[in-house]
Design a protein around this nucleic acid. Sequence first.
DNA 1: AGCCTTTGACCAGCG
DNA 2: TCGCTGGTCAAAGGC
Length: 433
Amino acid sequence: MQDAKKIEIAKPMAARPFSNFRSIPDLLARGASSPPASSFPEETVAIKPKTTRLKSSSHDSAARVVSPADDESESVPSRLSEKVSVTCMRADSESNVLYKPTAKFISRATASLLANLGNLDAVHQQPATNNQLPVQVLEQVKPNYNYHPTYSRQRISPSQSDTKQTYEPSNLVPQNVEPDMRTQQSIGSGDRPSYDGYNWRKYGQKQVKGSEYPRSYYKCTDPTCPVKKKVERSFDGQIAEIVYKGEHNHPQPQPPMRLSSGPQEQAFVAEEYGSETLNSLWSNCVLEMSVSTGTSSQVGRAGSRAVSVDHEKLDCKRRKNDDQVSGVNGAAEGVAERHSVTHTSTESEISGDGYHWRKYGQKVVKGNTYPRSYYRCTGPKCNVRKYVERASDDSGYFVTTYEGKHTHEMPARTMNFAACDPDAAAPHHPFIT
DNA sequence: AGCCTTTGACCAGCG
DNA sequence: TCGCTGGTCAAAGGC
């Protein structure tokens, strides 16, 4: 919360031969539980085949992404093009908004966690076969071209590419990603590829035009796996985008160490985040709730749950300890309840606000300097979306806006959820029509 | 020893 | 055809 410094992610678009984009339905079919196509096209716009790096905030629409879940068939490009203007309006206006609760302010750190949720969500949405792309698939789309059969894009929200407080998923699976971690460590935090469940070997680095930072190329370390990814960085050197190419033909490496509580994990957490950070994470939750205005408790709950994210897998116990020490629970009883831990298994999607979200896009909306991140509930046939964007007052807060109504119950919590925080066992539905 | 990153060179696509 | 650019290779070196 301390730093409200501007971080603008001018989204570059990697050049791509769009001649053979894999159809999104194919991706969707392979995907775990993507919701039905219905609403994403608003973020879809033709993408120029040439790399376009924007050096500053821009409303240029060249860099747009589209969710694979939106594509049900073939003629996507044209269809998308048709919907762009309409649905973009929808995003900005309130038409078709079933329920739009008061936006909730969350901190930069929280947004960072939220943003990372997208990454983790995708990772954990891997089906048993695990031969899908490990991240939410944000396909590039270009009119008159087919979808590229192999590329997918993972865009990193500004908060993800944020400061050192940025929650790095890779840190959560230390053993499994040891090589990756080593890489990250060897090249410094500024060059850390985000962890997505697979192990990667860097095979190249290229200074791309218009970017201060080089683009890194990685290959899956599995000897038979053709998957590659390239990591692009924003002008501030933080990871801004990851583009995947190909499909893993092998299961996702299983983390040897469970992310459950335990001395080891706790030690690890402390090492990675520092006790201060962990405490502040929790404290921020409370503070954020305190500063929220005009927010229904349910929305607040939703927002606060979003704060919980995957950290909870790690610091469940720790939080309890922290709470006891800091008196958080006592100081903000109701809030503490809202911020109760949402535990998910490592195989499941990560719940931020009790529901499972898939980040499906990011764009700079008109009138805003910073990009807005789009998330969609992954529930079956559920069209609920939420938008996370930086507050226009540049206060460093982020605004989360929910849209739609869940068509399903909140996913059941698993693991030690109740044990970790019994108060969180009865989540509220954050959306009301 | 094995696996990794680094980095310059090479290649291919495109305008 | 040529130059630019992105993507990949592979040798060298580090851990």
